[in-house]
Structure formats: structure tokens, C-alpha cells
């Protein structure tokens, strides 16, 4: 079992509010780990710590055995962390295709020098990105919407574009923040199928999700968080069987 992500004794506090308190997590290649817990448990904060939006107070984060907690946000994405956002954060003045084209791990087009002096390289990268984007849009069934503005798509499709954009990054770790919130019908099936395929292809996936059946269907292992602490780790069934946890979760 190859460990892709290892979070070691991570701690982060905002004043008196502790969002990560001695958090230890390991995610292996091909595994889908569920991250559950009540609102405010620190699930999204953990994603922000791992992806580099937040800097931890103490503790380490390793990606493929390499420490990454000192790297800025954009360098962590380049080192192979792809993530989605609860509120999607799509580029709203751009088309679906443009949203995807901007997202590969390496994008020489963001350097004014390469754009001016290494035009062949930029052009080649554009071609490859377009090919990859077309394939991904095909997989999520939205190839026909490539030239539509993202804001013109229905909500469920926007969620799928959020996932597709993250998949442009071919890194080893995929963090999905509430991919199912507000998604139903065909988009739900697609989301589930694609996430499963990504894990099967060898990605380590971590999902924050309130939809328990989604977690149950996809994850072999899950972690229950509350108040920044990991209360229990185990199979989804084990976690759901624990009365203490379900009470916490459903606020009984």
C-alpha cells in the first residue's frame, strides 16, 4: 500500500477556535477516504490546510513522502494536489472549455516570457490541454457544453465542471469538498462513477460529504471529525453504528 498523503499531528487554531487538533490521516493510492462530521468540525479547514490555503500552526503534511507544508498554494497544486470547492468557485466570465484549459498542473501560458519567447511550447501545452479537457468533458457527459458560459449551466452540471476542472490536474491526490451538495439525478450518477474511476486509476481521493449514502457507496474507510479532532476512524458502517457519533452528527 503506497501512502500518497500523510498528515502528521496537524494543528491549527484561529484564536480560541481550534479547527485542527492533533489530526493524523493517511490516504493510500486508489483509496477513497470519507471525511464526515457536523458543520464546523474542521473538514473544509483540513482541506485548506492540505491544499495550502491555510498554514498549519504545527505538524507536517507529506505528499508521496515529501514534506509540502512549507509550499505556497500554487506550488502544492503543481506538486499534485487537485481539489474542488463547496461553492465551486468556477471562473464565471469564461466558458466551460476555458475553465478547464487553465487548470493543468503545468501551464506555460501563465508566463509572459514563455508566451513571447517559447511559443511552440505554449502551443503544444495548449493542444495537450485541449485534448485532455475534451476527454474529461466526454467522461462527464458535457462535451456539448464546452463553449457555453459556465454560468449558463444548471447547478448539477456546474458541479461536474468543478470536478472536471480539478481532474485536469493529473496529480496523485484529489480532494472533493461536498461534491454532492445540491446534485441529483443523472449528475449524481456521473459524479459517483467518475470519482470511482479516478480511484481505480490510482488516485488517492478524500471526500467531504454530508450525503451518507454517497460515502457508503464509495468509501471503504472514513474518518469522523468534530471540533477539529478526529474522533474515530474505521469503515463507514462502523462509524454509522456508533451511537455517540451519530448523535453528534445529527445533533440529537
Amino acid at each position: 500500500m503506497t501512502v500518497v498523503l500523510r498528515v502528521h499531528k496537524l494543528r491549527k487554531a484561529f484564536g480560541g477556535i481550534v479547527v485542527a487538533d492533533d489530526v493524523n490521516i493517511e490516504i493510500a493510492k486508489g483509496e477513497i477516504l470519507g471525511l464526515i462530521g457536523p458543520n464546523g468540525a474542521g473538514k473544509t479547514s483540513l482541506f485548506n490546510l492540505v491544499s495550502g490555503v491555510l498554514k498549519p500552526d504545527t505538524g507536517h503534511i507529506y505528499l508521496n513522502g515529501v514534506r509540502i507544508d512549507g509550499l505556497p498554494l500554487y506550488r502544492r497544486a503543481r506538486s499534485g494536489i487537485a481539489r474542488t470547492w463547496q461553492n465551486m468557485m468556477l471562473f464565471t466570465t469564461m466558458t466551460v472549455m476555458e475553465n478547464l484549459l487553465i487548470a493543468p498542473r503545468s501551464y506555460p501560458g501563465e508566463s509572459i516570457f514563455k508566451v513571447t519567447l517559447a511559443r511552440d511550447r505554449v502551443r503544444r501545452a495548449e493542444r495537450e490541454a485541449r485534448l485532455r479537457a475534451t476527454q474529461i468533458l466526454d467522461r462527464v457527459g458535457l462535451a456539448h457544453a464546452a463553449d457555453a458560459m459556465v454560468t449558463d449551466l444548471p447547478f448539477g452540471h456546474q458541479k461536474l465542471i468543478g470536478l472536471s476542472r480539478a481532474l485536469m490536474n493529473d496529480g496523485e491526490l484529489l480532494l472533493l469538498d461536498e461534491p454532492m451538495a445540491g446534485v441529483e439525478g443523472a449528475a449524481y450518477e456521473t459524479m459517483q462513477r467518475v470519482v470511482r474511476q479516478e480511484a481505480d486509476a490510482g488516485r488517492a481521493v478524500c471526500v467531504v460529504e454530508h450525503n451518507v449514502s454517497f460515502i457508503k457507496d464509495l468509501c471503504t474507510r472514513a474518518v469522523f471529525m468534530s471540533n477539529g479532532r478526529i474522533l474515530q476512524a474505521g469503515t463507514v458502517d462502523e462509524l454509522l453504528a456508533s451511537k455517540a457519533l451519530t448523535d453528534l452528527y445529527f445533533g440529537v
Binding site: S51, A77, T93, A103, P104
Partner: peptide, 15 residues
Amino acid sequence: TAMRDEELAFSALGR
């Protein structure tokens, strides 16, 4: 354009 639209998401894509 992407940076102007949504800077955090833009950075988190590696830009």
C-alpha cells in the same frame, strides 16, 4: 481573466 474572476481557485490550480 481567471485570476480576476476567482483568485483563490486560480492559485489552487497551480497558477
